[in-house]
Amino acid sequence: MDSPELILQYVFSQPFAEAAGMTLLITILSVLLGIVLGLIIAMMQESRVAALRGLVVVYLWLFRGTPVLFQIIFVFNVLPTFGILFSGFTSAIIALSLNEGAYMSEIMRSGLQAVGRGQRTAGRALGMREWQVMRYIVLPQALRIVIPPIGNQFIGMLKLSALVSVIAVEELLLVANQTASANFRYLEALAAAGIYYLLFTTVFMLAQARIERWAGAQKRSRTTPKVSFTQRLLGVGLKQASMR
């Protein structure tokens, strides 16, 4: 069979489509959980309770100080010896979201800090509770600031998700590898996987651009710089995604 034909056949085959779905699911779940975790951590960092801040330091130290691959294997292989047993998929989500949270907290923190103290004071002075100030004044303003870096985190996570092939989660890379090892048509199998990756990256970038435009339009800001597709792809003109 010709290469192009086989590639197309792979792309539209059920195993590849399912694997692509798995990759997408892992990416989206991990980033969403990472956002929640990152927000909690960012708020804990602002806390007056020293023990909470201490806990955060330990967490960040552990998850930024070790490789993601290490964390994935640790959750999957070491926790069971303590009687904590997860499926490959659950282990993948746990490890990736815990890791993501450690980086997302920084993004969330910069978002929260960009909202001036005076804005919170003004909310309090109106008789709002602390959670209302957070919900109606701080978070909506912080959201605008964190959208571009969160978009980058999605793209980064898409690539990280390939790592969970080592714990036998049936995502794109694993399926491509398995397919190829049966007939040694590596080029075709990997090309099919690559097409999916590029498709998702492109969709993420377009979505990011749309959401940014929406947030900018809401604020009617005339100062939001235009970011071209190439700039987006290369990460120029955006806040760089944290490197792992």
Binding site: G118, Q119, T121, A122, G123, A125, I137, R144, Q218, K219
Partner: peptide, 13 residues
């Protein structure tokens, strides 16, 4: 008690 600040502090969003 209503309060008004030197820097207005209108909610920017």
């Amino acid at each position: 008690l209503g309060m008004v600040f030197q820097n207005f502090e209108l909610f920017l969003h």
